[in-house]
Simulated scan of single mutants.
Amino acid sequence: MKRYYRVMLGAKSVHAEECKSGSFIGADFSITEDLTMSLHENWKDFNRQFIPIWMAGHPEKGKVSAGLSCGALWTIAKGITKGDIVLCPNGEGSYMVGEVTSNYVYNPEGVLPHRRSVNWHQNTISRSDMSDALRNSAGSIGTVSDISKYAAEIESLIGNIQISTIISTDETVEDPATFALEKYLEEFLVSNWKHTLLGKEYDIFEEDGELVGQQYPSDTGPIDILAVSKDKSTLLVVELKKGRASDNVVGQIQRYMGYVKEELAEPSQQVKGIIIALEDDQRIKRALAVANNIEFYRYEISFRLHKN
């Protein structure tokens, strides 16, 4: 099945024009070897092989940064398949759109040496034409992100057909209105993190001054927010309910925490979780009564008009 990805072509899209003229996408991550014989079917196996190599070249970095970098490299080199669609920012407020046409190729003499050939479409997609949800996902921090859940909208934009309705295809979403609201909450929470209760104790993960803890990739889906305590002793997984069934969100955060514990946490670090929802949820509270290290937070929205 065709999938859709947002791919950054260098920091601030510095290589976008060269990639367009050369008909390719690519990545670097300071891995200077041909990956052809090392592209495991499972990205976790790839990470186990290359995280030590990456960390040897970046001794000041931790497992979170290493996992993000190696996971993105595997996705570009292997995870994206022929026929998939890539959206790449051109640095001018639009996205180049292309179809991947080859398997992995190594070009050590050029920029972004770990490459895939791409047939670029003539038209681009303007950020202003995207729905808020797609715009937020396509603008997320990180080299590559899977935006396949917006396939219908992307296809409409590629065909220059504007759509006015956001449709959720996630069968776990019980309340689409709350889902849309809590997507905005995620952006608000990230933007105002330092002014929240959580921000007093935790920092969202950053990499070279940029947030990488929002929508952090894992083997069971992207983590809404991944944070670390100010004393570095605790990794925090934050998941917004987003209108989903209570059982689904509890199971999901437990899977995320398991991933963080096994793949990202240092031996001295513990892992905690927080679920945030619009309303009091008795089902979540019951489930968390027998779950370790997961707390439930409810948020409130205040809206007032003042006559001058």
Score class of each variant (00 low, 15 high):
Glu155Thr: 03
Gly57Ser: 06
Met96Ile: 07
Ala277Gln: 04
Leu305Ala: 15
Ala152Lys: 13
Thr169Leu: 09
Val97Glu: 06
Thr172Glu: 15
Ala77Leu: 02
Ser145His: 13
Phe205Met: 08
Ile166Ala: 05
Gln269Arg: 10
Ser137Met: 12
Glu153His: 09
Gly139Ser: 03
Glu207Asp: 14
Ile53Cys: 01
Asp34Gly: 04
Lys82Val: 15
Arg283Ser: 06
Glu171Pro: 13
Cys88Ala: 06
Val86Thr: 01
Arg3Lys: 13
Asp84Phe: 07
Ser23Gly: 03
Thr234Tyr: 05
Val97Tyr: 02
Gln214Trp: 07
Arg286Leu: 11
Thr32Pro: 03
Asp170Ala: 03
Asp224Arg: 12
Val173Tyr: 05
His306Arg: 06
Gly110Leu: 00
Val118Arg: 02
Ile158Ser: 13
Glu266Lys: 11
Leu39Gln: 04
Lys20Asp: 03
Gly67Ile: 07
Asp281Ser: 01
Tyr106Ser: 02
Thr220Phe: 11
Ser246Pro: 09
Ser164Leu: 14
Glu266Ser: 10
Val260Thr: 10
Glu187Leu: 06
Asn308His: 11
Gln49Trp: 01
Asn90Lys: 10
Arg135Glu: 09
Gly213Lys: 08
Gly79Thr: 04
Ser246Val: 05
Leu197Arg: 12
Tyr299Ser: 00
Asp146Trp: 08
Glu207Lys: 12
Ser268Met: 11
Arg286Gly: 08
Gly251Val: 14
Met257Cys: 11
Thr178Ala: 07
Ser69Asp: 06
His306Lys: 06
Trp120Gln: 09
Ser191Val: 14
Ser117Met: 14
Gly221Ser: 11
Gly243Ala: 09
Gly26Met: 06
Asp280Lys: 12
Ser23Lys: 12
Met55Trp: 02
Leu68Arg: 01
Tyr104Pro: 04
Thr165Met: 08
Ser140Trp: 07
Glu239Ala: 06
Ile284Asp: 02
Lys12Leu: 09
Trp120Cys: 04
Phe179Val: 01
Ala287Asn: 05
Lys44Ser: 10
Asn123Phe: 07
Phe179Ser: 00
Thr101His: 14
Thr234Met: 13
Thr36Ser: 13
Ser164Lys: 14
Trp193Leu: 10
Leu226Ser: 00
Gly273Asp: 02
Val111Met: 05
Ile166Glu: 06
Glu41Gln: 13
